[in-house]
Design a protein around this nucleic acid. Structure first.
Length: 443
RNA sequence: GUCCGAAUAGUGUAGAGGCCUAUCAUGAAGCCCUGUCGAGGCUUCGACCCGGGUUCGAAUCCCGGUUCGGGCGCCA
């Protein structure tokens, strides 16, 4: 028997009206065996759903019935039988089996419950992620994540963006700020890249005009929160002849489109998660950094002065303030002090202490940051120096600015944060298959 | 890094110095049952994180460790 003959249909693709008395094979995990004595039900689960196999004692070969009764939950089986429309069965059909093939027997006890009857801690679930993925809710999260990335690719492609891949192994010590993971590259020191920033800018000099990249980023910070990862997925764009307002418009429209697509294509998954999505209204509210400081100070819980970065508490204060005023969770904070933004953010010509930069926020956390970039090599070099970095380390990057670099802008948005805020997931590890955090390196 | 909290069958839990030979659910094994769909009923199995201390007596109190959770910090 060919392996592909073990499964002719997903359980959800069986239409009882059209397929009555047809022979099918379903394959998957034994979700449950319910033996009532004279009748025995075996529920087979696959990625798309569940199907019921029914064995009536009087009508079934005793050997087959014994085989069904002895199945261990979560084992892999293929069941071949005929479709019988049955109003009493889930999905309106049941399979009357001719043959049950046990392909892989599960050990017992299972490391966790997969039916939703008993909770498991996130730590337990991550230790047995392969089994956790068999839970309907977990499958739903990762199906939606796929839909999010599909929508991002579709949206950006339709806006003329080209998908690129840039190196994750780099020689440059740092752009400043975050620490990097050092690695050995043959006999030299190298690092895992913290972001595609420098490379995507170089592609603007290369004339690709509009690029995006979806890929891993690595940060060696010892942060220990529900919204940080040491390996995350970044969705980055860079676009020529665009200022910060142009790329903000792309960002807010993309986020709205992603929500629309998830609503349109993932209703079953959203229902499984108990999430009711609404599309964020565009354009998103824009407040300046200065206004943000004023808002925070007006609540009296913190006293920030101009030039301070926003604390976690102040992000929540502003997020709730905006939500109470607009009913919207997404907003921009624009015009940040040049000093607290990275060297490549372009200062305003008339107010160099302010930069053409922005953060895109969700009520609960920062999702994205971006800016129009400096495209003048001399200005860029002096900004690198004034942030205490050595321009020699950036020579590979600066060269691209000396031979025709168009003005450009871009942003990066954290894929995991986009998904978790969309679904109301409280811990970022829930939306990563195998998260890498301060302590977890396996599985 | 720091502050707070937690750790009990495979999983999730109850437990406030003797009522613990440790509760309940789920699970597993067995029996009964012809329409279940978190099936139901009966029986059985399975656990106090590690090390020290206090006490006549510790799952329970104290100290140290480990691990986990949460807050903050750190984080273009």
């Amino acid at each position: 028997m060919l392996l592909k003959d073990l499964r002719t249909h997903y359980t959800s693709k069986i239409d009882p009206a059209e397929m009555a008395d047809k022979k099918v094979s379903v394959a998957g995990w034994v979700h449950e065996v319910r033996d009532l004595g004279g009748i025995c039900f075996v529920v087979v689960r696959d990625r798309e759903g569940r199907g019921q196999v029914t064995l009536v004692k009087k009508k079934t070969d005793p050997e087959l019935l014994e085989k069904a009764r002895g199945l261990v939950r979560e084992s892999i089986v293929s069941v071949t039988g005929t479709i019988k429309p049955e109003a009493k069965a889930p999905n309106g059909y049941e399979i009357i089996p001719e043959q049950i093939t046990l392909l892989n027997e599960a050990e017992s006890p299972l490391p966790m419950d997969t039916t939703g009857k008993v909770d498991a801690d996130l730590d337990t679930r991550l230790d047995s992620r392969f089994m956790d993925l068999r839970r309907e809710k977990t499958t739903a999260v990762f199906t939606i994540r796929h839909e999010v990335l599909k929508a991002v690719r579709g949206f950006l492609s339709s806006y003329g963006f080209i998908e690129t891949s840039t190196p994750k192994v780099v020689a440059t010590a740092t752009e400043g700020g975050t620490s990097l993971f050092p690695i050995t590259y043959f006999d030299r020191e190298a690092f895992l890249n913290q972001s595609p920033q420098l490379f995507k800018q170089m592609l603007m000099s290369g004339g690709l005009d509009r690029v995006f990249e979806i890929g891993p980023i690595f940060r060696a910070e010892e942060h220990d929160t529900r919204r940080h990862l040491n390996e995350a997925t970044s969705i980055d764009i860079e676009a020529s002849f665009c200022d910060h307002f142009d790329v903000m418009e792309i960002l807010e429209n993309m986020v709205a489109y992603v929500y629309e697509q998830v609503i349109a294509n993932c209703s079953r998954q959203l229902e499984a998660l108990g999430v009711e999505l609404t599309v964020p209204q565009t354009p998103f509210m824009k407040i300046t950094y200065g206004e943000a400081i004023t808002i925070v100070n007006s609540y009296g819980e913190e006293s920030l002065k101009w030039g301070d970065d926003l604390s976690t508490l102040s992000e929540h204060t502003i997020g709730n303030h905006v939500f109470n005023e607009t009913g919207q969770s997404h907003y921009f904070i624009i015009d940040w002090p040049t000093e607290i933004k990275p060297f490549y953010a372009k200062p305003y010509e008339d107010k160099p202490e302010l930069s053409k930069s922005f953060d895109m926020m969700h009520r609960t956390m920062e999702l994205s940051s971006g800016a129009q970039r400096i495209h003048d090599p001399e200005q860029l070099k002096s900004r690198i120096e004034s942030q205490g970095l050595n321009p020699e380390g950036f020579e590979f990057y600066l060269r691209a600015f000396r031979y025709g670099m168009p003005p450009h802008g871009g942003w990066g948005i954290g894929c995991e944060r986009l998904v978790m805020t969309m679904l109301g997931v409280e811990n970022i590890r829930d939306v990563v298959l195998f998260p890498r955090d301060r302590r977890r390196l396996s599985p």
